[in-house]
Structure formats: C-alpha cells, structure tokens
Amino acid sequence: MALHVLHFLHQGRAQWGVVADGAITPIPGEFESTAAFIEANPVERLLVLGAPSIRESDVQWLSPVTANQQFICQGANYRQHMIESGLDPDVKKFNMIFTKAPSCIVPANSDVVKPKEVRFLDYEIELGLVLKRNITSRETVTDQNLHDYIAGAVIVNDYSARDIQIPQMQFYKGKSYRTFGPVGPYLCLLEKQDIPKLKELVLTLTVNGTVRQNDTTAGLVYGPAETLTELSGVHDLHTGDLLATGTPSGCALTIPTPEKQRAAAQLPDAEKWRMFLKMQEERQQYLQVGDVVEAFIASYDRSINLGVQHNVVIEEAA
C-alpha cells in the first residue's frame, strides 16, 4: 500500500505525517534529514498510526527531501523530449547524469526567483525517486529488486537558466540557483507491489493554466533500475538522496535542427551562440515574472498521487 507523507511546519515545529484527504496523522519522532526519517519509518510502522489530528490547511509545507541529501539528475531521458532536442532515442547510447546543488531545494509551493542575469528561465517537471538505502559499491539493480533501493516518489521541477546552462556549458550552475528545485509536496512511500506503477505515472505541467508538458513515465529511455546500476559504479549514494529522472517534451527550450547544428559548427563560437540566443528570444514559452507554474504527477488509478506543486515566478530582490 502506497502511503503519502508530508514534511511540514506546525506551531513552530518541523514534523512528518501521513496525509490523506486533507488531514494529517503526525508521525512520532524528530527527524532532521530525509535519511533519518526513512530509516526509522518502514511503511508497516506507519500503517498502524492513530487517527488524523491536524488539518493540512493549518500547516506550512516543507520539502520532503532535506537540503543535506544529494540531488542527482538525468537529462534528455524521455523519447519525445530527445526528439525535440534533436537527438535520436534509438541511437543514444549513454545516460546523461548531472547534479543540482541541494541548496536549490525548496517546498513545493515556493516562489521561484528569476535571477537578474537570467533571460531564459525554463521549467521541467520530473519524477523524483528517493533512495531507501546506501549504495557504496557496484551493484546490479533490476525491476525485480528495485523495491529494495527506492523508498518513494516525489514531484521535482528542475527549473533551468538556459542562457547559463547551454552557451556556458554550465549544467550545475544553470540549474542550481536558489529556489530552482521545488520538491514535493508529498513523498509517496512505496511497497514492493507499488513499484510497477512507476512505469505508468502521468506527468502534467501548466503555465498560467495552459498545459505545456504532458506525458507518462512509459516514455523513459533509461529507467530507475539501470540508472542506479550505472550510478553504483561511479560514486556513493545514500538513503534519502534524490534522483530526478528527466523531463518530458514541451519545455521552452528550442534546439537547432541537425542541419543547422552542422552549419553552425563551422562558425566562430561567438556567432554560433549569438544565433542560439536569437532562437530563444523568439520563444514566448520562457517564464516571466508573474507566471504561475503548476505540476502534477499521479498514477492512472490515483493510488499514487504526488500532489500539486504551485510556483509563482518572482523577480530577484535588489
């Protein structure tokens, strides 16, 4: 049985609780990290809690992934997103991995601050997976044992400054500004029988009420099991760490056709990037101050429902 957990602030105290139908059942204990919470609270323990005692409307959301965990990401990992990016999903032979600064993690209803130097602010709804245990050596993860490695799922929005990320070739910098990583609201804790539903989740993102992204996790190119297998051979992962699995098509970013890319390769770098930025200027989809971004992820049967992220784009303070 999937259980939806909320990390929240109530009467000045950070707490965790099981949430259902707008009511919260507090979970006893103090947990200063996502790792500490997961290690102390197997699903079977939470199934025997008492009745709800707090209204969700009376609390302040916190991120279910705390800022002392790693934030690891996959790029170009949905078939249609690869195609719109000028890549062939049937030819690509590598799993693109990068990281975001944990300091960009904020609650799901936080404002997103548009830095003064950023012109092209983009959105990326993603399914986030939270690790259940440490991985400190090379391991083989499969769909059959994935439940041993994944504690639960969250919504992630991988906000990106495209004019920093791409022309400067700065994935980390362009995606790590403070507030560029809303997580939550809910951490859906999963049991073994829930894991197959990770392949049939629907992701939807709207800007000012208009759908920009809509796809299912069936479109993932590199799934969680093979990704964790690969990452296990690279560096240590820990309980509570976050893996964001990539975004579907529909972002504001536009990429030149392969023909234009080949032609641009013959140009000096300054001219090549001037042309790229000119292409982005023509895209009305980039986020502006005042825009409202909402993100939803749920299974078809709604047994997994990760809630709604609601972010307003604001200007950086002087």
Score class of each variant (00 low, 15 high):
Ala218Asp: 07
Arg55Gln: 12
Cys251Trp: 00
Lys260Gly: 01
Leu47Ala: 07
Thr247Pro: 03
Ile195His: 15
Phe31Met: 02
Val65Met: 07
Thr25Met: 15
Ile38Cys: 08
Glu126Ala: 00
Ala252Glu: 07
Leu220Gly: 05
Asn145Asp: 02
Ala295Arg: 03
Gln309Tyr: 08
Asn145Met: 00
Ile105Leu: 04
Gly223Pro: 13
Glu56Thr: 10
Leu6Met: 14
Leu242Cys: 04
Val183Asp: 03
Val312Ile: 14
Gly240Asp: 06
Leu205Trp: 09
Met275Thr: 01
Asn109Trp: 15
Lys175Ser: 07
Val154Arg: 05
Pro256Phe: 04
Thr179Trp: 04
Leu201Ile: 08
Gln193Arg: 13
Tyr78Cys: 01
Ile24Pro: 14
Leu201His: 05
Ala161Cys: 02
Met275Asp: 05
Thr204Phe: 04
Gln261Leu: 04
Ser160Arg: 08
Ile72His: 06
His7Ile: 00
Arg13Val: 12
Ser63Phe: 04
Leu131His: 06
Leu205Asn: 08
Phe31Ala: 01
Tyr286Phe: 09
Ala270Asp: 02
Gln261Lys: 02
Gly290Gln: 06
Ala225Phe: 07
Gly240Ser: 13
Val289Lys: 04
Leu220Tyr: 06
Ile297Ser: 04
Asn305Tyr: 06
Lys100Trp: 02
Trp273Tyr: 15
Gln11Phe: 11
Val65Ser: 09
Arg119Leu: 07
Glu30Leu: 11
Asn208Arg: 06
Val113Tyr: 05
Glu230Arg: 13
Gly17Asn: 15
Leu220Gln: 10
Ser110His: 08
Val18Ala: 15
Gln80Ser: 13
Leu146Glu: 07
Asn95Cys: 06
Gln168Phe: 11
Phe180His: 15
Leu3Ala: 10
Pro52Leu: 03
His310Thr: 12
Phe31Ile: 03
Ile27Met: 13
Pro185Asn: 03
Phe276Lys: 01
Asn208Glu: 01
Ala298Gly: 08
Ile27Gln: 13
Val19Ala: 06
Gly223Ala: 09
Thr66Phe: 12
Trp273Ala: 08
Ala153Gln: 04
Gln144Met: 10
Gln165Met: 00
Val202Asn: 11
Thr229Asp: 03
Arg178Asn: 13
Asn157Glu: 01
Thr247Met: 03
Gly181Ile: 08
Glu230Lys: 11
Val156Trp: 04
Pro185Gly: 06
Thr204Glu: 06
Phe71Asp: 07
Ser57Arg: 15
Asp148Arg: 01
Val18Gly: 13
Tyr300Pro: 11
Leu205Met: 10
Ala76Leu: 14
Gln280Pro: 10
Ala265Met: 15
Met279Arg: 09
Leu198Cys: 13
Gly174Pro: 09
Leu187Gly: 14
Thr136Leu: 12
Gly250Gln: 00
Gln165Phe: 01
Ile135Pro: 02
Met279Glu: 06
Val65Thr: 09
Arg283Phe: 12
Gly184Lys: 01
Glu281Gln: 08
Pro107Met: 01
Ala151Pro: 13
Glu191Phe: 03
Glu139Ser: 01
Gly152Gln: 10
Leu9Lys: 14
Glu32Pro: 15
Ile54Val: 13
Thr142His: 07
Leu46Gly: 11
Gln60Leu: 12
Pro196His: 00
Ala20Glu: 14
Gly174Asn: 09
